[in-house]
Design a protein around this nucleic acid. Structure first.
Lengths: 161, 161
DNA sequence: TTTAAATAGTACTATTGCGGTCCTAATTAT
DNA sequence: ATAATTAGGACCGCAATAGTACTATTTAAA
C-alpha cells in the first residue's frame, strides 16, 4: 500500500500520451483508443486535469484537450494533486482536522516534514522524464539536494508556529 | 490522499510512545491509556509489529511488548511495511500483476523508480528522529544523496530486465 | 496448583471510499 | 440546424479498511 489511487495512475498514463504530441488536440475517444482506459474513466480524468489547469479544454465539435504547459514543466506531484487534492501522508499532515488522539500525539509536526520530503521528491520529477525511459540519472541528485535544502528553510518557519 | 492507512499512522504513535522508554515492557492497556487509541486497535497493531520483529512480545501475566531494536535503527519505512506489507506507489510498481492497460503503458518502469525514491526517503527517517522534535536538518542531505546514488546502481540492473 | 493477566490468532461486521458508469446541459465547428 | 464534443453532476456496487469480539495459549504470582 502507500499507493496513489488507480485514477491518478491512469492520469499519468493519459498525460504521458498527450506529452508525445504536446501541441495536438486529442479528444476523449482518441485517448481511450490509445491508452485502453475505459471512455467514461478517461473523460472523468480529463475533466479533473483541465480543472487543475494542466490541460486546456476545447469544447464543441473537433474539440478535445491539449497540454496547458510544456511536459518539462509538469511535475508528477502536480498530476497527483490534480486528481487527489492536497497530499499528505497522514490526516493531520495537511489539514487542521482533529484526530481523536491529537492531544497525546507528539509526532504531528514530524509527519508534516516527512510529507514535505516525499512531495519534494515528486515535484522533482517531470512529465518529460516520465515519458522518456527514465534512467535514474535523469533524477538529478543535485536538484534533489537543492530542493531539500530549500525545504529546510521553509520548514524552519513551520516549526516555529 | 497518497496516505498511509490510519492503522499505520497509529502504529507510529505506538512506536513513538515505546521509544520514550526503549527498555521497559508496556502492555496493551498501558499503551491505550497513554496514546488514547482504542484497546482492540492497539492490540491489533502490537501483534503486527511483533510479527514484523520490530517488537518483542512477552506473554503471560506481567507481559507486554518492548522494542526489539534501538529507536535509532528503526526506520519509518519499516513500520509502514510491518503494517501495510510491501510498498509501491502503483499496482505494477511492486508486483507482477498485470493491469489492463499494461501493453500500452510505457511508464511502468518509471513508477518503480519513483516508488524507490519515496521509499528511500522513508527509510532514511528513524524512529528516534520521529520522537525528538524534528528539525529537518536531522534528515541528513548527505545520507539521502548517498541512498539515492546507491539506488541508481541497483536500478541500472533493473532497467535491463 | 489454581488463578488472573497477558498475548496469539482468527473471524466477523459495518462503513467508507473508490472505481466506474450514465445522463443532461452547454458549447462550437460544419 | 446538426453533430460532435466537453462540463458537471448523480449514482451504484464492490472492495478495502477500521474496528470489534471471541477463543486458545502462555506465564507470573498467590
Amino acid at each position: 500500500m502507500l499507493k496513489i489511487s488507480r485514477i491518478t495512475d491512469y492520469a499519468t498514463v493519459v498525460m504521458a500520451y498527450l506529452a508525445q504530441n504536446p501541441v495536438d488536440i486529442h479528444n476523449a475517444k482518441d485517448i481511450t483508443t490509445h491508452t485502453h482506459i475505459a471512455l467514461p474513466t478517461v473523460s472523468k480524468i480529463l475533466k479533473l486535469l483541465a480543472k487543475a489547469e494542466l490541460l486546456i479544454s476545447h469544447r464543441g465539435a473537433n474539440g478535445g484537450y491539449s497540454l496547458a504547459i510544456e511536459p518539462k514543466k509538469i511535475s508528477i506531484a502536480s498530476i497527483i494533486k490534480a486528481i487527489e487534492g492536497d497530499v499528505g501522508l497522514t490526516e493531520c499532515a495537511h489539514t487542521d482536522s482533529h484526530c481523536q488522539i491529537e492531544a497525546s500525539c507528539s509526532i504531528r509536526g514530524n509527519w508534516r516534514v516527512i510529507s514535505q520530503i516525499v512531495l519534494n521528491a515528486l515535484e522533482d520529477i517531470s512529465l518529460l522524464e516520465m515519458v522518456s525511459p527514465m534512467s535514474t540519472q535523469s533524477v538529478s541528485v543535485d536538484k534533489l539536494k537543492q530542493a531539500l535544502s530549500e525545504m529546510n528553510t521553509e520548514q524552519q518557519g513551520l516549526q516555529d508556529e
